[in-house]
Structures are given as C-alpha cells and as structure tokens.
C-alpha cells in the first residue's frame, strides 16, 4: 500500500478536541447561552445597567472563589472564607463608628490574618484535613463574632462612605468595584502562572511527596497560602458590606458553597494540581447569571435550589468529560 489514506476527522470530534485544548471556550459559550436565554425570556433586560449589576454581584463571589481556587490547587479547600468575610465586614461596620477608618480597617483584618494563620498551621504543620480545619475555625470565628456583637450592640453600626462607593458606585456606567477586582485578579493570575509561589502551589497539589523531597518547606507554603486566602476573604467582606449595606452575623455565609461551585465549574480540580483563576472568574459570572435567570422565572424558592444544584452538577460533569478526553 503506497497511497496514504487521509481519514477525515469527524466534525464532532474536532470540536471536542478544540474545546479540550482551550477549556475556557465552552465556559464562555455557556455564559453567552445563559445571557441569550435571559434576553429571550425577558426581552430588553440585558442592558448596561443589568451588566453592571451582574458584575457587582459576581465580584465578591469571584474573589471568594479565588480563595477556593488557590487552596484547591494544593488539594485543600477553605470553608472558613464565609465566616472571615462576615467578621471583617461586621467589625469594620461597628468599629468605624468611634474609630478612625484606617484603624477600623486594621482591626477588621486582624481576625482574617489570625484565622488564616491557625488554618495554615493546622493544615501545614499538624496535617489536619483542610475541610475539618477550616470548618472548625469557622465555628470558632462565628462564636467569637456572636460574643463580640454583645459588646457593640449599643454603639450601632454604619457603612463607611468609601466602602459604599466601592461596593455599589458606578463611574460612567462601570462598577467601581472593578477598581479593586481587576488588579486583584491580575495579581492572582500572575502569581499562579508566573511566580515561584504559584508553581509551588501546583507542585504541592500534583505530588506533595515529590515536592517535599525536592526541598520545599511544605508547611511554609501552606501557611502562607491560607493566610493569603483568609486576607482575600477579609477584603471580600469589606467589599460585600459596601454592596449589601446591612451588617449581619451571617452576611457572607451564603457565598461559601457557591464559591466552591464556581471554582469547580471553572475547571479547578478539587484534588489539586490542575486549574486556574480565569476559569473561576467565568464560573462566578455563570453562577450569578444563573441566579438571576432562576429568579426571573419566578419559581418557588425550593425549585430554584433544585435547579441550581442540578445545573452545577451537570456543568461540572460535562466539563470534566470535555477536558479529560484529550
């Protein structure tokens, strides 16, 4: 046989391979499809104001999902982000009444650093499972917050103007929160892709033993990681209080599970070593648009939750299928 037969690759397979090489494309397509469905169901809803609003609500979720992305890269998870964000928001809102804003900011970030440090030591030095460690510290944090609330119940709370401006304000139709988010996201993407610390996170998640044997101080990496994650959560809390404007003891708690979902939808493996922050951002946008969509359909709360869960599961499963068949 001298003639070479060129078998044409079926169109479906070619598309699949194309998507597997660029895992962001199917996510963006899904996002566009959701927006189109929204526009069809409620013509005219997709306008400048809606986009700005969606972005505003997606940003806190995206930052928290960033915490999950980074910890998940090492094979961990950080479930204390909700409590940390709530703590920093609540402390900021109550301390700013009699304190200088800069001082209040420092006080608000203190529990974040502390919880991050405890998480990091527990996971990195004592080798406690991250799920247990972060659940435990979030329990302690919530308890501390409840005790703290008693001491400030008389002084009341207020939202600093700056945070309200950052959280809800628009400049020429563009949310001010992007001023915080764009540099932050760029920093996370840069850290993960271009710095030694980022590479260490991937390395630890991929093969912890090999990483340790090649001379990496495991506990230092993990401790630094959980402190960073906690501080990001603290900053999210400050941003979120500016958006919601009502300090409560369970402010950011509802964001915790969606933040995990956003990171997973964005293609980060919960077992570590694979993923990135860009996908997570799109994952957060998808979840936010999805929530709007389910709200607009005017379903009962129960049906909305069922659909939310099913869609998260379906998207993750489909995405894994696409990416894994290389």
């Amino acid at each position: 046989m001298s003639t070479t037969v060129i078998t044409p690759v079926p169109f479906g397979r070619r598309i699949k391979r194309f998507m597997a090489d660029r895992p962001l494309i199917p996510l963006i397509i899904l996002l566009v499809i959701l927006v189109v469905i929204l526009q069809v169901l409620r013509p005219g809803i997709v306008n400048e104001r809606w986009i700005a609003n969606t972005i505003k609500f997606a940003i806190p979720l995206a930052i928290l999902a960033g915490c999950q992305t980074m910890t998940m890269l090492t094979g961990g998870i950080d479930l204390s982000v909700g409590t940390v964000a709530t703590m920093s928001a609540f402390i900021m809102a109550t301390q700013v009444v009699n304190q200088d804003p800069a001082m209040a900011f420092l006080l608000a970030m203190m529990p974040a650093v502390l919880i991050g440090l405890v998480n990091g030591i527990g996971v990195g030095v004592f080798r406690v499972h991250p799920l247990i460690m972060t659940l435990g510290t979030s329990l302690i944090g919530t308890g501390c917050l409840q005790v703290y609330q008693r001491t400030v119940i008389a002084s009341g709370a207020k939202i600093p103007d700056f945070l309200a401006w950052l959280g809800t304000g628009l400049t020429w139709g563009i949310p001010n929160a992007l001023l915080l988010f764009v540099p932050l996201a760029a920093l996370i993407v840069f850290t993960l892709a271009r710095t030694g610390f980022g590479r260490l996170l991937y390395a630890v998640g991929d093969n912890e033993r090999a990483t340790r044997l090649s001379g990496v101080q495991y506990w230092q990496v993990i401790t630094a990681l959980y402190i960073i994650s906690s501080m990001l959560a603290g900053i999210t809390g400050l941003l979120y209080i500016g958006l919601i404007k009502a300090p409560s003891l369970s402010l950011a708690e509802p964001l915790v599970l969606p933040s995990v979902a956003a990171a997973v939808i964005g293609g980060t493996s919960i077992f570590g070593g694979r993923g990135g922050y860009t996908g997570t951002i799109i994952g957060a946008l998808i979840l936010t648009v999805l929530t709007t969509l389910l709200t607009i359909l005017q379903m009962p709360e129960g049906a909305r939750r069922i659909l939310f869960g099913l869609i998260v599961l379906f998207v993750t499963a489909a995405y894994l299928r696409i990416v894994e068949e290389r």
């Binding site: 998870i77 799920l131 599970l257 995990v260 979902a261 997973v264 493996s269 919960i270 077992f271 009962p300 709360e301 129960g302 049906a303 909305r304 939750r305 069922i306 659909l307 939310f308 869960g309 099913l310 998260v312 599961l313 993750t316 499963a317 894994l320």
Partner: peptide, 30 residues
Amino acid sequence: MLIVVTRVPDIVVTLATLFVLQGAALLVLD
C-alpha cells in the same frame, strides 16, 4: 450513582445534591 456515573468528585456531587434536597424539602413544606 451520580458520583460513579459522572466521575465528578464526591464533595462536589454531594454539594450539588445538598442544594437539590434542600430545595425539595422547601417544596414539601415551606
């Protein structure tokens, strides 16, 4: 079965079913 069939990590699957079951509970009694 969802864990076995979809090959999605168990944490994620049960996280999703958490929402589904919660929603179903709200539909049974609000």
